[in-house]
């Protein structure tokens, strides 16, 4: 029986609740209702008093989680959509992210952000917030792209003694399936994964864009190009070593993300490759992001707003022919 990305998130939370009595889940509609996406389905009944509905108060939900973590608990806060975490922005970046540095008291907690676009989601239910949070010192930011990572990174997030922003991609919730969940992850949370081996160019990407990049790599292999694809898994910290090691073999690099094009993870990757991997490069490092508008509602516009496999393949051909 295959497990979906969404089921993996639910299973990781069920395991965390089961294994660690400090864990509790807090968020809008996460209790008996099981969450807007059913990521907490059945958990309230299985763990009475530990899966709690919050008022529609994102700021207070994060503040409350900070207080609970001070007392030794391990809160997992579900934001109903990543977009609404902007209401909690101050608590996340000003309090949770600074607490350990200021006071020496760690602030372990997980904030789950159902992220990214789906057809019909529109400007306020489609945002990718990873670059915003990665910008602030004091946060770990995870962006799982696979069912296995959705499961193991969430478990790792609960164990870390720091605040973790866990960006789960809604487009992958039910699309993505794995035959089974491995007992252990093959990688620690600070390592990127080489998702496809290649020799001619490296695509560095994360979250839902991994699958577009893998499709593009498959298409280009029919043209005789072998594209290496690096899945960052976690965007703060970025595993620069794995990126540079790949670029040292391929000599060409394209960074792909679904987020807005000004700055962000892809810009950070290009900057690192340019600064620290210049000697490996046979072509300028490139990046590809979504268009510089809010995420549009209509499926036609939405599909054209984000990078896709065809667009990635087009830019890669330019990189390869430089």
């Amino acid at each position: 029986m295959a497990t979906t990305y969404l089921e993996a998130i639910r299973a990781a939370q069920a395991k965390a609740l089961q294994d660690d009595e400090r864990v509790f889940i807090y968020g809008q509609d996460v209790g008996a209702f099981g969450g807007a996406f059913k990521a907490t389905k059945g958990l309230a009944a299985a763990h009475p008093g530990r899966v709690m509905d919050s008022p529609i108060s994102e700021d207070a939900s994060i503040g409350l989680a900070i207080g609970a973590s001070i007392e030794g608990l391990r809160p997992i806060v579900e934001m109903q959509f990543a977009d609404f975490s902007s209401v909690a922005f101050s608590q996340i970046v000003n309090q949770a992210a600074t607490q350990f540095y200021r006071t020496g008291v760690p602030c372990p907690m997980v904030v789950r952000l159902p992220s990214g676009g789906t057809p019909g989601g529109g400007p306020f239910h489609s945002q990718c917030m990873e670059a915003i949070y990665a910008h602030y010192p004091g946060l770990v930011v995870m962006t799982p792209a696979t069912v296995e990572d959705a499961y193991h990174l969430l478990l790792a997030a609960v164990e870390l003694e720091d605040p973790v922003i866990y960006c789960e991609h809604k487009f992958l919730y039910n699309h993505l399936k794995a035959e089974r969940l491995p007992e252990k992850s093959d990688l620690p949370p600070n390592k990127a994964r080489v998702a496809r081996r290649g020799r001619d160019a490296t695509v560095v990407t994360y979250s839902a864009m991994l699958h577009e990049a893998l499709t593009a790599a498959g298409d280009l292999s029919r043209e005789g190009w072998e594209i290496e694809v690096v899945d960052l898994r976690v965007v703060k910290p970025i595993d620069t070593e794995t990126i540079l090691e790949s670029v040292s073999r391929t000599g060409r690099m394209l960074a792909v993300g679904e987020s807005a094009p000004w700055g962000g993870v892809t810009a950070e990757v290009v900057a690192r490759v340019a600064a620290d991997g210049f000697r490996f490069l046979d072509a300028p490092p490139r990046r590809l992001a979504c268009k510089d508008t809010p995420v549009p509602y209509h499926p036609n516009l939405w599909a054209a707003h984000r990078p896709n496999a065809a667009e990635i393949a087009r830019v890669l051909r330019e990189v390869l022919r430089f």
Binding site: S57, L64, A68, I70, E71, N94, Q95
Partner: peptide, 18 residues
Amino acid sequence: HLGAMISTTAGVLLARRM
């Protein structure tokens, strides 16, 4: 940031009750 410590203090109290 004014008001931030209210929910944080509430979180301490909630954890103690739990």
